[in-house]
């Protein structure tokens, strides 16, 4: 079973990387691009078979290590 953890900077925390990507896209002619936020996706392969337990475990991991709750938020998705 897989857990996909998406980690993003919290709203309101300056994201210079996202800003730079947005700037570059605008320069490439993608004028429709406004705000850009860059984050990361962490894919976990778990031995767990129960999706609920897998989600609980992945959220625990995210809070303890994968995300820094001072500046980041996360979201966990479970897939088979």
């Amino acid at each position: 079973m897989k857990a996909i953890v998406t980690v993003m900077l919290k709203d309101g925390v300056l994201d210079p990387q996202g800003k730079a990507i947005g700037h570059a896209l605008n320069n490439l002619g993608f004028a429709q691009v406004g705000d850009v936020r860059a984050g990361k996706i962490i894919e976990l392969t778990l031995s767990e078979t129960d999706p609920v337990a897998a989600k609980v475990a992945a959220e625990d991991m995210a809070q303890k290590l994968l995300a820094n709750m001072v500046i980041e938020s996360f979201k966990v998705e479970i897939s088979a």
Binding site: V13, L14, P16, Q17, A20, V70, I71
Partner: peptide, 11 residues
């Protein structure tokens, strides 16, 4: 200690 260290503003 409180707070966090982000990427340098100029990347």
């Amino acid at each position: 200690l409180p707070g966090a260290l982000l990427r340098n503003a100029g990347l």
